[in-house]
Amino acid sequence: MSTPENWTPEEQRLQDALHRAAERVQPGPDGLARIRRRTAVVPMWRRPVALGLAGATALAAAVIVGGVVVLSDDDGDAPVASQTSTSPSESPSETPTQTPAPSATQTAPPARTLTVPVYYVADSGDGLRLVREFHTVETSSSPIAAAVNEMLTASPADPDYTSLWEPGVEVTSAEIADGSIDVDLSAPPVVGEDADLATQQLVYTATAAAASAELDGSLPVRILVAGENPSEPVGRADPLGVRQLVQLNDPAEGATVSSPVAVTGEAAVNEANVLWELRRDGEVVDSGNTTAEECCTFSPFELELDLEPGSYQIVVSESDESGGEGRPPMSDSRTFTVE
């Protein structure tokens, strides 16, 4: 790191000039008073969230048996819905407004393009964990049905991801019923070795899609087959226990983008520290770290890369706190092309 001692004369002159210019700036005397006026009231934005959470918790207590916690996860998936997704022409913020009413499936709505969150699983270094992609689909179904159907029928774009649900099953409908999201499948599903995680894959997808469409993403989910035998309602398990702790959002796998490249994602990591490596043909060409907005809970991170045209892989990971003793650090990667 540069210190004033090893700066060139040029750098020292610049430092001197900036300090001289800066010292002539004299802020007004009432800055703190202005800030106080704006922080005096409990911020409006916090109220609906707090109410929503309280409601969800009461509901969970009423309908859920056996240690399943329902999280509203407003911090997780809801903000994501407003981010640009795989298709830049898509405006996810418009998507919810096209959804007529919170009663999910409507009478034959026209086909439209939706960008939906879809959860898969990946080998995280701590067993299989949930990971997420955004898929753009043409559909006349409700956003929840479209998302779950995509999860059941489409392969993940990222080769590191996979689904625990065997193909051959589709979504017949997905409706918000009396205090739950009811997902009706066309046939009995076959899931891989981990039925609980497979259920969470569907629950996360359905609730994230609901939240993205400004419906109630805090509801638990019931799974039906051909309209029969609804399961017990299942809510989201604690994301720290089931999600991969580092998740990239952009660039999408295989995307072609222009420089500067915005790399965004979410991470729940120690000291909010997210490490990254940029690779070309397997060689590390640049690396660094960035910070998530908060530590230890899922929160957004971003960085920007100035890149010449070519093909790249970005790898983001948590730092290894154990000094190699514990599980390997979790990471996520994307391959993309700069045009």
């Binding site: 610049l14 900036l18 300090h19 660094g288 770290n289």
Partner: peptide, 25 residues
């Protein structure tokens, strides 16, 4: 980058973090 380093007196990684870019950048 210049203002953060020569006025802010920040280290390279502090600057990277404030600008949300890489140390190399």
């Amino acid at each position: 980058a210049l203002v953060l380093r020569y006025y802010g007196g920040l280290s390279e990684s502090e600057i990277a973090s404030a600008m949300k870019i890489s140390n190399g950048a």
